[in-house]
Structure formats: structure tokens, C-alpha cells
């Protein structure tokens, strides 16, 4: 069992909120990936058991939605928006900067296990471009200095 009892309880609680428990699949996947860091086949089965639906329903939803990492990622998942508004404001070079500074390949994990950098589609932060999301937090109006500061803070936190 990879899911903690807290996660299972939270999933069950979510399932009870909806008129139909199947609706809890997305909330449950959110709970699961936040605990584990990413999603994988056996976890779908656990999630399915916790809600009381079939693994097929869970897995087919999970793989459709791209927000949930399907592979192990660093402790901090940095998602750089490279869509139009951010792109106009230099998102590509922001990403390049991050990759170089953290010495990782896109999607890979930095040596210290802390960071993974990926590019994503528009995150709804267009007026404050360029931006990136680190785990759940948005960082906006990024400049080189700001990025350095954020990375330092995160490294310090470990």
C-alpha cells in the first residue's frame, strides 16, 4: 500500500461529497499524487479501491489529464508556461535558463533530487508573464534575479 491512511480517508471523504462517487476520481488523484509525487499503475488500483470504482475508470481518467506526473519527478516540479503570452515575454529562455542553472534535461531530475523542469501550456497567468509554477505555487513576472532567489529559497528549504 502506497497510499497513507490520511490519503485514503481524504479520498473516502471526497467520494462521500458527490451525488455519485465516481466524481471523486479527479480529487482522489490529486490527493494521491500530492502524497506520492506522481502516479503509476498500481496506484490507480489503490485509488480505485478507496473510491469503490474500477481501476479502468481511474486509469483512463488519470492518463487523460496531463497535470499529474506519470513518472518520478524532483521534489520541486517546475512547470514553465511556454504558451503564447508567456512565450512573447521570453518563456523559452526562462526554461533554458532553469535547465542550465539546475543542470538537468527537461523532464529529468536534478542531481540533488530536488528539481524537475518541464514546459506546459497556458497556466492562466498571462498578464504576469513570464511565469512558472513550482508544485502548487505560482511565481509571476519573472526576471533572472527573481528566479535565482526562488531557486535559492527552495534549495535552502531542501
Amino acid at each position: 500500500m502506497a497510499l497513507s491512511t490520511e490519503s485514503i480517508d481524504a479520498i473516502k471523504e471526497a467520494a462521500a461529497r458527490y451525488p455519485h462517487k465516481k466524481s471523486a476520481i479527479l480529487p482522489a488523484l490529486t490527493i494521491a499524487y500530492r502524497q506520492i509525487g506522481y502516479l503509476y499503475d498500481d496506484l490507480y488500483i489503490e485509488v480505485a479501491d478507496a473510491i469503490g470504482v474500477s481501476p479502468n475508470e481511474v486509469a483512463s481518467a488519470a492518463t487523460f489529464y496531463t497535470m499529474f506526473p506519470k513518472q518520478k519527478v524532483g521534489k520541486y516540479l517546475i512547470q514553465v508556461c511556454t504558451n503564447i503570452s508567456c512565450g512573447l515575454m521570453g518563456a523559452e529562455s526562462l526554461k533554458e535558463y532553469l535547465l542550465k542553472k539546475l543542470n538537468v534535461k527537461e523532464g529529468g531530475i536534478s542531481e540533488d533530487g530536488l528539481f524537475t523542469v518541464v514546459s506546459v501550456e497556458c497556466l492562466g497567468s498571462c498578464t504576469t508573464a513570464p511565469m512558472m509554477q513550482v508544485n502548487q505555487t505560482y511565481y509571476e513576472n519573472l526576471t533572472k534575479e527573481k528566479v535565482d532567489e526562488i531557486l535559492n529559497d527552495l534549495r535552502e528549504k531542501g
Binding site: 474500477s54 481501476p55 479502468n56 475508470e57 486509469a59 483512463s60 492518463t63 487523460f64 496531463t66
Partner: peptide, 9 residues
């Protein structure tokens, strides 16, 4: 039945 589904996008 639930033994066939579509996956990915």
C-alpha cells in the same frame, strides 16, 4: 464491464 478503456489523450 470495465476491462477495456481508452487511455492518454
Amino acid at each position: 464491464e470495465q476491462d477495456l478503456g481508452h487511455y492518454q489523450r
